[in-house]
């Protein structure tokens, strides 16, 4: 009994020790908070809430949009950004046939080896090849871009919160900082080589607005290539590159959930039947 008492006595002392230590930290923190001015955040915009064909549990890819988005990536983004987890063969999933994929792959130069001399060289791509990187390595990428390495875009929409909306908003959102913002947060002014964008968490990023004029890309399907249209199309395309299996995932989900619902109802009825025998009568 005395032993048990001592266990509890020690516990009470230890507990009070932790509590005092953390409350001491609280007091110091509260004093600091009261006497020091808190560093305010420079506000940035949440991404616009845009509508997408692949939204929601029944969403589907809009192949025409994905193909337009590929064209935007191909003609604009790919100058600086790689897409290293996507293979040319994957393009068959967005509505191209084998021949078109082969021709598209062949139009790209990928790293290869000269079969005679063994020297590093380039060769036309095959469907099994992956989208080539615009730079041979990170050092080259950094030196060509003012020390900011353009990130790979394969997973970009999954690597940002609300990624699809974020990419589209960012591409549409370039604008100089407003007078009010600068008055309140002078540090929000873009530094040298930086560009202001209210959707970027730091407000200023190294990438200049890539989509600036309507008709920058000529769509094969005749869609008018406004900046908004191009931004949305490439955001949709990058959503596909980030998760090509997304639509299949949702489509697989429905039969699984419906089956489980059916099985769970059966399990419930079976459980009720079995327990009816021992449940007290009301």
């Amino acid at each position: 009994m005395t032993k048990l008492l001592s266990v509890r006595l020690v516990a009470i002392l230890v507990g009070l020790g932790f509590a005092v230590a953390v409350l001491w930290a609280f007091v110091v923190g509260a004093y600091n908070a009261a006497t020091e001015e808190a560093a305010g955040h420079v506000p940035y915009e949440k991404p616009m809430d845009l509508a997408w064909s692949f939204d929601g549990p029944f969403g589907k890819w809009d192949h025409a949009q994905l193909q337009r988005g590929l064209k935007v990536y191909d003609e604009v983004c790919s100058a600086c950004h790689s897409l290293k987890f996507v293979a040319f063969r994957d393009l068959e999933q967005i509505g191209y046939d084998e021949g078109q994929v082969k021709a598209y792959a062949a139009s790209k130069q990928v790293p290869g080896i000269d079969p005679v001399t063994g020297e590093a060289t380039t060769r036309p791509g095959l469907p099994t090849d992956y989208f080539p990187s615009p730079y041979p390595n990170n050092v080259a990428a950094a030196s060509a871009n003012n020390n900011a390495i353009p990130p790979d875009l394969s997973l970009m929409t999954k690597a940002r919160g609300d990624g699809t909306n974020y990419v589209a908003s960012l591409l549409m959102g370039y604008a100089p900082p407003s007078e009010e913002l600068l008055a309140e947060h002078p540090e929000a002014a873009p530094g040298p080589g930086l560009h202001h964008n209210p959707y970027f968490p730091n407000l200023n990023l190294a990438m200049a607005a890539p989509l600036t004029t309507a008709g920058q890309v000529t769509y094969d399907d005749g869609t008018e290539a406004t900046v908004e249209q191009m931004s949305k199309d490439v955001a949709a395309f990058l959503t596909w590159t980030a998760e090509p299996t997304m639509v299949k995932r949702k489509q697989t989900g429905w039969p699984v959930l419906i089956f489980l619902l059916f099985a769970t109802v059966l399990a419930y009825m079976s459980k009720k039947q079995i327990w009816a025998a021992v449940k007290p009568k009301k």
């Binding site: 516990a11 009470i12 230890v14 507990g15 009070l16 932790f18 509590a19 953390v22 409350l23 609280f26």
Partner: peptide, 10 residues
Amino acid sequence: TAYYFLHFLV
């Protein structure tokens, strides 16, 4: 955190 330790230990 203070409450957590106080709860279990005190």
